[in-house]
Design a protein around this nucleic acid. Structure first.
Length: 377
RNA sequence: GAGACAUUGGUGUAGUAGUAGCACAACAGUUUGUGGCACUGUUAGCAGGGGUGCAAUCCCCCUAUGUCUCC
């Protein structure tokens, strides 16, 4: 993998660039849609380029459980397995340490809502998995089998899967973690980062991940250390504080500590209102489940905000989802029809919204790239 | 014409002489490196009339409606 920066903004840390992989090039900044189980749910690989999607991120933990990396390797690797001849990332499984651990126990996401659980609320260890200094012992959610994932295991699995860009195995900490817990966790993430670098034998690009929670000194310590290692790029992960206003501040803490010439990926962030801010903060790529996950729940993202297509009022609405959108869904289908599909629980409704949402998000980022190029951002 | 049984939110159903529960639907929210087309909350009901009881959705009578059986 090679990364070329085409232009740096004079007005912010934003930049446009090209990620070059053996499966093609990616214009940055870009959204990386989430294909956890080697699919963007409801869409097939031929439809995806029509949403302007350039690159996907799939998941080590979930593909290890099913079908198993051995199967995927035998089938020729992820690209051939899912018939996606463009770049792919794989996440390391580090997020599942949080989402299947404290996140699940406490019912929290990685950004706390104002007035919800305070820091320090979590136990020392999650209920269903054990975090040790070598890795994490998971319990499989479909057959109860014990699954051990550490830095070596994650890298070996990711080598078998064969994505272009792979991530170091980390512990994504919870927004309920206190300073002491976060500091100890960070030491593990840093130790694992070095093991990941030593383990990898392929020429896949390996990205290190900055952690440190909501604590400035830990974030900066992490960015300095991870940034000094021989990674091909960097992820910024973990929790993003007690409300969204803190998120950009936390990106600011770390971004100047990372080598400027290498790509920066923001893990798991990307509501429409976040996108411009994170790109201005210097983020090149970011993955987010929002366009696809919300789409399957009936939420359409449009130029005027969000529409809940489950609402009966849309049954009488002949308009497209978004008059300003030129995706094939907006060219051909009414809000009325899409709402009918959702209320009738027809899977085509989920497909149409997934398609539109990805097109909408990708178009938004495309516009931002243009604005950076023209010096507007 | 006679008899039996039934009637509980919009729908389908529990249940009890003392605060009527559930599911679906409706409505309103939530969802940021995706275990779970999920989660949370709200609205809304004892067919009608009379009687017995401290108290009736429940027991009794009448009416209405429905299902079944008999003539």
């Amino acid at each position: 993998m090679d990364f070329e920066i085409l232009k740096k903004s004079q007005k912010s840390r934003a930049r446009i660039g090209i990620l070059k992989t053996s499966f093609g090039e990616v214009e940055t900044p870009t959204l990386v849609p989430v294909a956890t189980q080697a699919t963007i749910k409801t869409l097939n690989s031929e439809e995806l380029p029509q949403t302007k999607t350039q690159i996907l991120i799939s998941n080590t933990f979930h593909l290890h459980l099913k079908p198993g990396e051995g199967i995927i390797k035998k089938m020729g690797g992820l690209h051939r397995f899912m018939n996606w001849p463009k770049p792919i990332m794989t996440d390391s499984g580090g997020f599942q340490v949080f989402s299947l651990g404290f996140g699940r126990d406490l019912g929290v996401g990685k950004i706390l809502k104002n007035g919800s659980l305070p820091t320090g609320k979590q136990a020392n260890s999650p209920k269903d998995l054990r975090i040790t200094s070598d890795g994490v012992l998971f319990k499989s959610y479909f057959d109860g089998r014990k699954i051990f994932l550490g830095p070596k295991e994650s890298i070996k699995i990711q080598e078998s899967l064969g994505a272009d860009i792979i991530f170091a195995f980390d512990e994504c900490t919870s927004p309920t973690a206190n300073y002491e817990y976060t500091k100890k966790s960070l030491a593990k993430t840093h130790k694992w980062a070095k093991i990941c670098l030593e383990t990898k034998k392929t020429k896949q690009a390996l990205f290190g991940i900055v952690q440190g929670g909501k604590y400035k000194d830990l974030r900066q310590e992490s960015a300095k250390l991870i940034g000094s290692l021989d990674f091909d790029g960097f992820g910024i992960g973990g929790e993003f504080g007690d409300n969204k206003n803190e998120m950009v501040k936390m990106i600011d803490w770390v971004i100047d500590e990372l080598p400027e010439g290498k790509p920066r990926h923001l893990l798991g962030i990307g509501h429409p209102e976040d996108i411009l801010k994170i790109i201005k903060a210097g983020v090149d790529t970011f993955d987010c489940i929002v366009p696809t996950h919300y789409g399957r729940r009936g939420v359409a993202f449009v130029s005027t905000g969000r529409l809940d297509m489950n609402k009966s009022k849309f049954l009488n609405d002949k308009n497209p989802l978004d008059k300003k959108c030129d995706c094939f869904v907006c060219q051909n289908y009414s809000r009325s029809y899409i709402t009918h599909l959702f209320r009738a629980k027809e899977i085509t409704g989920m497909k149409l919204l997934t398609f539109h949402n990805l097109y909408f998000f990708n178009s938004m980022v495309e516009k931002i790239r243009k604005d950076i190029k023209n010096g507007k951002i």
